[in-house]
Simulated scan of single mutants.
Amino acid sequence: MKNPWTTLSNEEVYDNPWIQVTHRKVITPTGTDGIYGLVHFKNQAIGIVPIDEEGYTWLVGQYRYTLEEYSWEIPEGGCPIGAEAPLESAKRELLEETGLQAAQWEHILDFHTSNSVTDEAGKIYIARQLTQGQAQPEDTEDLKVKRLPFEEALQMVYKGEITDLMSIAGLMRAAVVLK
């Protein structure tokens, strides 16, 4: 489909190693003048649902600065766009956050986050045939890791105890794939 928007100007208003924010003057699809703010992510989001032979998974807990609350999530991270393959980022993130390595990987979901203000996209994988090693969190991460039955993680989603959308989507998609 042809893009019905016309961009009149595009001004960078903020930039750091992770995001770039631009302010745009536009003509909307209905022909009116408008503005648009776009948050461009420099990393692709990566999520991993590790599943062991006993049907257990791992969640990572941490205090999320932006939300000012604690959050339980699947192992997650970022893939530098154009600098690393998404699967390699998934392997790195799983090891960093949980100490796990997987012999089998399956890509289960592509997604966009808030497509009204950002172009962030991501991938979610199931990791199987796991071996436990030593976690290697980044110096900004104070993580708690828990192993629990996969069904219990799903119950946390249903009860609203997991609110991270990438974790919800990953766990729900994994439930379908694992049937």
Rank of each mutant, 00 (worst) to 15 (best):
G37S: 15
E11L: 11
P149W: 05
S9C: 01
I46W: 05
E69M: 07
G47F: 01
D119I: 01
N115W: 09
L38T: 12
R24Y: 09
E76P: 02
A102E: 05
H23N: 15
E88D: 13
T6F: 05
K159S: 14
A103R: 13
E161T: 01
L94T: 03
L109S: 03
G99Y: 01
K25S: 15
S9F: 03
T118Q: 10
T28S: 09
H23R: 14
L87D: 10
W58P: 10
P75Y: 00
G78P: 03
E84T: 11
D164G: 04
D164R: 04
M1P: 09
L67N: 06
L130I: 00
A83V: 09
T57C: 10
D110Y: 03
N16F: 04
I74G: 03
L59P: 04
Q155M: 11
E106M: 06
T28N: 08
G31W: 09
E69L: 03
W72L: 15
G61S: 07
V26F: 08
N16P: 08
K123C: 14
C79G: 10
S114T: 13
K144T: 12
G99L: 03
D52R: 02
S116Y: 13
I46F: 02
L87K: 05
T6S: 12
P50Q: 08
S9I: 01
L143I: 01
M166F: 05
R147D: 03
I81F: 05
L38V: 13
Q132I: 06
M166H: 09
S89M: 07
M172V: 07
T118H: 08
V39G: 04
S114A: 15
L178K: 02
G133R: 12
L8T: 08
L94P: 09
Q132Y: 07
P80Y: 04
H40I: 11
E106I: 03
S9R: 02
L109C: 02
M156D: 12
L95K: 10
A90L: 07
K91G: 12
E97C: 05
K159Y: 06
L130P: 02
D52P: 02
E161V: 00
T57L: 08
K179Y: 13
T6I: 10
I126A: 05
G47M: 08
G77W: 06
A102W: 02
S71C: 12
D139A: 13
Q20Y: 04
P149I: 00
G61C: 07
Q134E: 15
H112D: 14
A85W: 08
Y14Q: 02
T140C: 14
K146T: 07
T98E: 03
N3Q: 11
S167C: 02
L165I: 11
R173W: 00
V26T: 08
G78T: 00
F150R: 01
P75G: 00
W58H: 09
G55A: 04
Y125P: 00
N3W: 00
E69F: 00
